[in-house]
Design a protein around this nucleic acid. Sequence first.
DNA 1: GAGCACGCTTGACCGGGATCAAGGCGGCCC
DNA 2: GGGCCGCCTTGATCCCGGTCAAGCGTGCTC
Lengths: 252, 252
Amino acid sequence: MGRAMLQGRMHAPNPIASDGDEAHFCSTCAFGSVCIGSGVDKVALHDLHCLVEHVGAYRSGDAIFRTGDRFNAIYAVRSGAVKTRVVDLEGRELVLGFHLPGELIGLDAIDPESYPCDAIALGDVEVCRFSFPALATLATRAPSIQRELFRRLSRDIGNAALLAGDYSADERLAAFLIGLGRRYADRSFPVHTLTLAMPRGDIANYLRLAAETVSRVLRRFQDRGLIRVDGRHVSIAKPAELFDLARPILQR
Amino acid sequence: MGRAMLQGRMHAPNPIASDGDEAHFCSTCAFGSVCIGSGVDKVALHDLHCLVEHVGAYRSGDAIFRTGDRFNAIYAVRSGAVKTRVVDLEGRELVLGFHLPGELIGLDAIDPESYPCDAIALGDVEVCRFSFPALATLATRAPSIQRELFRRLSRDIGNAALLAGDYSADERLAAFLIGLGRRYADRSFPVHTLTLAMPRGDIANYLRLAAETVSRVLRRFQDRGLIRVDGRHVSIAKPAELFDLARPILQR
DNA sequence: GAGCACGCTTGACCGGGATCAAGGCGGCCC
DNA sequence: GGGCCGCCTTGATCCCGGTCAAGCGTGCTC
């Protein structure tokens, strides 16, 4: 059944069209609207192009930044997927989140002024680097940029609180799949079959479950006809019922 | 043993000295430095005074804002303590956080543009109201204000992630007490005996535990000589050992 | 091609914390 | 003062999900 042929890689359509002109790549980038938002005016967008740096490619397991690194930039994922995680004193990993193209990482480093987590590439990854001092300066000149930054920061607070409840394994996994489906859809990724960028262990860790539990719940969902699982490929057969399961988390 | 005489009220020393001149109350407010931060310059502080409104007093159970209210301001707690919470469709409460004088609430409403939670007074509460449009405009003029806002937003992201791990009841409660002790100390509240502003049920809910478990763990801590509990009064007898318990959460 | 490592799945068992139930203690209102 | 009610505590029982263990398929390396 060819399940593992896509192991460890985001097989979304290549988000980057021909991209010769770096000074304009936000407007050509498939994720420009998701990334920068629709609220940023032309002039601000031009200024943004001037300060962004295009970095990569990273390969699976590479770090974009590491815990404790001095904070000086935030990053937007450009292609591929990234996980953020901390490793505690005993070496145990704690996955904080997964980040798709157009999403910002490093926002939680502004206050401590050093990155509080690692950002690790899941498969091949390219990112856009925004010097934060330059961005903050630009934000004072361009209110639309400031507004968008405030919005991103604010949204992350809400998202972080999302999985903090005492939810069951079923609820967590359902919410994870629904949420992922929405984010894929926003990016015009194929949604009839989600291609997971991360191994079961990372999903489990992120949801604060054991990998075995993730396996079991996925199987149970499949047995109930809610989803169809084939390795890293998951298709949602009954979105409405899955959403009902996730409701306590998604729709408080 | 007179345990309950302070039920439901923060009996910290009154944080507000005589406060005749509203235009300057940040500088006279005991929490000015905690609230606004030390990084804000004189001129910006003056501008801030012009746009702040002093509201209250709220009484125990009153809402400062409610889920779904249109977002137009953030608030700083001025005296007393506030809990933020959501109530799900089945009417079950989920406590998101407790907020002491000098702390900001409503930051998570910037993106959705409506408050995603209720803010409920625990005992008597006064707050400072900052119109957000006005504040954002000011922030473009005063970089120190923008910087402080970015820092606050960023810090909240980190804090939200803190309790999201799969920690034991002992670890959670230890971290809660240590964290509360630190915040009390920052505000020059008496730290030899913390006076809890919230009932056990709220603590339990916030920590994703049952109220019974909170009772049992507190008793266990007391039996081990770590703390001394008297109703809403908790004194930390062995801070170092309590911190050791909380280490997996506080010191990743 | 053999051997190995890794990711995933499935089963058996166990334990921490939730739930259910009962009782005590104050505070408050009539 | 009597009675109600909310908050807290303690005990008994149960269950979800973690842990341990084993087995399988796939891909990589030598």
